[in-house]
């Protein structure tokens, strides 16, 4: 068979992946890859100039995403993807900057940056893959681990309260907030598309299975069992009050788009304010000075 004849076998998102880095490192049954697929799908469907889209990841399983996506891609340090992205965006406002990282990276070690970027309504998109534990290091308890779930550093079960990420993001000032699971791939794609088409701080949480660690340690079965759990226990409630989104161990998962509002971004506020105060001395930032 000639090479050209095999073209139809090519994965449609291959052009968006660094195929020279495949196979990836994720475990069988892991949900991160499916979120990457949704992301690539959204890029595909968007009319964006992909040369102007940059992706920034931190550290962890999801932190590896930047390495597989064929965009200008930055694999940074643990917790600092958001401030890195902030610098990138402000230096080059024409870029669409996406932070793609895990719950430990974004809401644990990087939690402070999350709330401040949301507060500023920084014009970036954060895709936060939440697998309820620190997977890269072997399944430790996280800020998102539901109470009572078992983790390698919570061998008697987790007794801490966990973050509800949509509630946190909205309270801090995010102007677009959605939550989905790895089961809702088309919804994830749609949310990412919506986020691409708007300005301001967008936060998309995607709950995904960590089969090797979280599921095994808690005897929850394989990837399919977890998807079944999502199927049975998730409930779409667009516009739900983010105060009601807590996740209990194997409990109900309220998903949907909770927040979608317009508010001037950091750069809008800066430009408007400085133009008002400084008058003609001020050249609007981000216009003709890239």
């Amino acid at each position: 068979m000639k090479k050209e004849d095999r073209l139809e076998e090519k994965n449609p998102i291959e052009s968006l992946l660094r195929m020279d880095r495949i196979p990836h490192i994720w475990c069988p049954g892991c949900g991160i890859g499916t979120v990457v697929t949704s992301f690539a799908e959204a890029l595909h469907k968007s009319e964006l100039d992909l040369d102007k889209v940059a992706i920034v990841s931190g550290i962890g399983c999801t932190g590896r995403v930047a390495g597989y996506v064929k965009l200008d891609s930055f694999h940074t340090t643990h917790g600092r993807a958001i401030p890195f992205a902030t610098g990138l965006k402000l230096a080059h406002p024409e870029l669409k900057v996406v932070v793609f990282s895990g719950d430990g990276d974004i809401a644990g070690i990087g939690g402070n940056h999350l709330i401040h970027a949301a507060r500023r309504n920084m014009d970036i998109m954060v895709i936060c893959v939440n697998n309820f534990n620190y997977a890269m290091t072997g399944g430790q308890v996280a800020a998102t681990t539901p109470k009572d779930a078992n983790a390698s550093t919570a061998p008697y079960g987790n007794f801490e309260y966990s973050f509800s990420l949509p509630y946190l993001a909205e309270a801090a000032g995010a102007t677009y907030v959605a939550r989905w699971t790895a089961l809702h791939l088309r919804r994830v794609t749609k949310s990412i598309q919506e986020a691409f088409n708007r300005r301001g701080f967008s936060f998309i949480e995607v709950i995904t299975p960590c089969v090797t660690l979280y599921a095994r340690r808690n005897r929850l079965g394989d990837g399919l069992n977890l998807l079944k759990y999502y199927y049975e226990k998730s409930e779409i409630q667009h516009g739900a009050d983010t105060r009601t989104l807590d996740i209990s161990y194997q409990g109900k998962l309220i998903v949907g788009k909770f927040v979608d509002k317009e508010k001037p971004t950091f750069l809008d506020c800066m430009n408007e304010h400085l133009a008002k105060v400084l008058g003609e001395k001020y050249q609007l930032y981000g216009e003709n000075n890239d």
Binding site: G87, L88, H113
Partner: peptide, 20 residues
Amino acid sequence: IQMEDELASIAALIGAVWGG
């Protein structure tokens, strides 16, 4: 930009340089 801490400041710096 006044960042939330020095961890953020230096991360933003590196991002800004890659932004040109």
